[in-house]
Design a protein around this nucleic acid. Sequence first.
DNA 1: GTCTATAGCGAGATAGAC
DNA 2: GTCTATCTCGCTATAGAC
Lengths: 210, 210
Amino acid sequence: MPDRQDAVPRTKEYATGRVTRRAIIAEAAEAFAEKGFHGASLRGIAREAGVDHATLMHHFGNKTALLLAVIEWHDAQDAATSLPAMDFTVEGVVDAFVGVAERNRATPGLVQLLSTLSAEAGREGHPARAALQQRHQVLVDVFAAIIRLRRDEGAVDDDGLSPEVHAALIVSTWEGLQVYDALHPGDVDVPELLARTLRRELGLDGPLSG
Amino acid sequence: MPDRQDAVPRTKEYATGRVTRRAIIAEAAEAFAEKGFHGASLRGIAREAGVDHATLMHHFGNKTALLLAVIEWHDAQDAATSLPAMDFTVEGVVDAFVGVAERNRATPGLVQLLSTLSAEAGREGHPARAALQQRHQVLVDVFAAIIRLRRDEGAVDDDGLSPEVHAALIVSTWEGLQVYDALHPGDVDVPELLARTLRRELGLDGPLSG
DNA sequence: GTCTATAGCGAGATAGAC
DNA sequence: GTCTATCTCGCTATAGAC
């Protein structure tokens, strides 16, 4: 695998840096998913993208920020099509998120990277902390709203937990399942267990049997 | 903070290397919990322990192995007192593990490190993968045995999941809660939510009330 | 044999020149 | 916006001390 110096043609748009950024992100997505976060090197990614190591650093600042850019780019492809199409009903929300879990099976490398990042960002001052907190918060807000709705409908009974805490418990289970699945391949079926959890917690398995 | 070269006296036991190992582990535990896995440097830990960087490498091989040694050392202090005292009843198991979760609150740095390690080890070939798999398996075995017991007793109904998968779901929830807690401090009460989850899944909240 | 030290490689990250 | 130079780091290989 010698020089791919000219994989990105030096067009006018190239001079703006956008092509450079996108080329780096594309190479980084491949490298991270293939070799893992620590296994991939910024020098190698930069070389494959046809730029210098310091140029990559100029655009992204640090390795974690580059990984975040990769994840955002990956999310944008998924969310742009799936989430807007989600109707805000209990069944719609469950189907949408189970669908995300199912599509995640196609990119286990990125899921594992995201799990690692979530755990790493648990430390104050981590460069990705705010982004990961917001990422969780989006899920918690959706689930908490559904839980409130279902309690008002009488479909689930109030267990004494605030809807937000109950939602956090669901999100934690989902994330924990992804970690467990990566560590014990084949032992658990993440989309199925997520679906079971959601149906039970959101009262879709019959009147107050959950 | 200049040289602490002579923090460990050159006694006869020192020559066996055990004192050196323990001194390194003690410094590593402090450094990892304080600065995180990547923030702490082996050179710094070695310097604080009064040995050379290469000496540390000789004893532990790599940074991850040192972290594992720290965690094993931490576990040994906890497990040696709590788990043998656990009676193998449903209440006993729940109390024992909720107790572990409560004691974990005292060392959030190490818990966060372990969460990160679990996520990282989700990649094949990771140096700590086998150790983390076994660590999970111990928990799954205990919970699966209890679930079997409770099903035989008729205290919980068979939900169609194997006891092992159901146990894996519980372990995943616990681990996920620890990650969530580190990322959103104060939003969730890990021991309380673990206790709720265990009581519900193991049928301690009344006859088949789920 | 057991333990410790030296030297070097490639990595992430920073600073400054162009 | 890009590159050169430099820092410290994890890690390996190898040799020396007890």
